[in-house]
Design a protein around this nucleic acid. Structure first.
Lengths: 355, 355
DNA sequence: TTGAAAGCGTTACCAG
DNA sequence: CTGGTAACGCTTTCAA
């Protein structure tokens, strides 16, 4: 090993006695290179221990870095304890990885909902995916717009230059609620996902509800009310089992006269918490109270119960996002996409108990 | 908006009537710029809608891309259903994010243990973290070496040019095993994490054991044997609750004469599965069988049981990795680090039942 | 099929 | 404190 400095394409070209441009052609896999020349270049590269064209220099010329940002609102720990977020990103990488495009994590921290500008500004980005939160009033958005970085948002509120991928949250929840109504339920409470990421928890006032930050949360609440009219909302601080349990313990307080006969949680994770609360309060499900969720994720520790829920094709949603990114990278403007959901009736909903 | 083309630093400099190098100084936050000049440049930038220096061009010059790769062996869904992996990466980002460095996910897919070269080769990388698997015989390794990308490996086998961060897996497991031995346990079975990522599951033969791919798996097995001598190992296909349950159902088969009185699982996730299996087999824990894990992760759905386990400081491990990366980026060569673990005795281990 | 030359947008270095 | 100039390592015309 006598090399003083890391070899570059020029070094390789010189050693192979071809022009740099020809060597470049070889590494870009072009057909228009004589096999003999190609072999010579490859041999030179091997001898020099050349690792291939520097991605950064390549990016500068080709205006493509192979990096797509993933905005995941919160700390990794929170975002990735949400199976929906993970499945979604899994779908995205499934499509993007084979193209040599990687996902760059852009988490926020305890206080912030998104990445700081300092984080964004220094990092190459061919596109950005808002994976778990809409880009609504995100200061980073303006920066990305300036840089002309295309954006795909999941369940977000969108905007003209943002490609949207979502599901019919409202219709799905309405369908679920109709199922409950058909079973005789009239007093239904909703355990809501965070309306904003500020740690608030408790009953939702009209003012707070007017300032809901996330489209899907709003829509899922409306879906219930489409069927039953106004219902009480209980907001959780994060999408976590323990948060659902806290909510459940309050809502299902056995001493309350107007205890709901059914609880609609806005995620399966929260629903799992409500189930736990019911259990700890000595309530039978579904005899004393029905519980339903949203997402249709696999909670391996939930059985023997099967949760009634609205199933959304989360991984497929991720793939659709991945394809949208692919289109964007190719300079095309894909249409927004709305995937479908369906009701899955499990063992956690049943006839409303007689008053 | 009359701009035909995205503004560059040169455009901004021209408009502010300064040299490009001066404008560059402004954006790099240098002190050696007259406030008046700075304001003029900033004003010009604002007027032109300049988003700041192009990260790619900047990277080319400064030889730093702000991107650190995270190799996570498997599909996102598998890797991120492991709380240990998530906490670890959380710790890493906690240190790296404030530095404007982002984590690029480098998952494998169903068959592969690591990213393909096509994925790696096109992407800028200041460093790489092997987060959930050692770089042992990884073909990507040679590529990274050529590119002179520094590597930090967690619990990995290492190599001269790889910085290692780990915990005393062997000693920790030995301590746990001594606790069991003190309780009178002699017939102990181990539910092992995957020895290699090839979907194998079942009793571990000597040949297979000789080819174990992951250092921590080997060490944790040895820790048990340090105390009790050779014990049967049951390999799982992935680190998942259901896998632990499958293993548990076989190992705890009530009809077997030599049913173990204690099961040591190599992760808390697997231990949770074993607990489930015990329950479904009608065995009481710890009266009929003791169960222990490794990691000390918070499984919010596990209570009321408290798992006996070896607690490792996973998030701190991530921070240490982050700091090691920081050092490496600064051109220094940090020392390997071994963090500490401790035994946490819960309610799942007790005296061995009388034969 | 190959080569020459011109940048891509920035920062580093050295003068002034 | 500011300006000029030369890279950084590659790809992309355009010619030959």
């Amino acid at each position: 090993m006598s090399d003083r400095t890391r070899p570059t394409l020029a070094t390789v070209a010189a050693r192979a006695e071809v022009a740099p441009s020809t060597a470049s052609l070889v590494f870009s896999g072009s057909e228009r290179v004589a096999p003999a020349t190609r072999d010579r270049v490859l041999a030179a590269a091997a001898e020099l221990g050349y690792a291939g064209p520097d991605p950064v220099a390549r990016s500068l010329r080709s205006r493509r870095s192979g990096v797509v940002g993933a905005v995941i609102g919160e700390r990794l720990t929170y975002a990735f304890s949400d199976p929906v977020a993970v499945q979604l990103l899994d779908g995205v990488t499934e499509v993007l990885s084979p193209l040599g495009v990687g996902l760059l994590l852009l988490p926020g921290d305890a206080d912030r909902h998104g990445p700081t500008l300092a984080q964004l500004a220094h990092v190459p980005l061919d596109a950005v995916v808002y994976a778990t939160c809409g880009p609504e009033d995100d200061p980073a958005l303006e920066h990305l717009r300036r840089r002309e970085v295309p954006i795909v948002a999941v369940d977000g509120p969108g905007g003209d230059d943002v490609v949207l991928v979502g599901v019919p949250d409202r219709r799905g929840t309405a369908e679920l609620t109709r199922h409950l109504a058909d079973l005789g339920h009239r007093r239904v409470a909703v355990v809501a996902l965070p309306l904003r990421l500020d740690g608030t928890r408790g009953p939702v006032t009209a003012e707070r509800r007017a300032r809901v930050h996330f489209r899907d949360v709003r829509e899922r609440a409306l879906g219930v009310e489409d069927v039953l009219g106004p219902v009480p909302l209980w907001e959780t601080a994060t999408n976590a089992v323990e948060e659902g349990a806290r909510a459940g313990r309050v809502l299902l307080d056995v001493s309350a006269a107007d205890r709901p006969t059914a609880v609609v949680a806005q995620s399966d994770i929260l629903a799992a918490g409500v189930l736990r609360a019911a259990e700890s309060l000595g309530l039978r499900v579904p005899e004393d109270v029905s519980v339903a969720g949203f997402d249709g994720v696999d909670l391996p520790w939930l059985p023997p119960v099967r949760l009634t829920t609205v199933v959304q094709p989360t991984t497929e949603k991720g793939r659709v996002v991945g394809r949208a990114v692919t289109e964007l990278l190719a300079g095309r403007r894909p249409a927004d996409a709305v995937l479908d959901v369906h009701l899955s009736v499990g063992t956690t909903t049943g006839p409303a108990p007689r008053a």
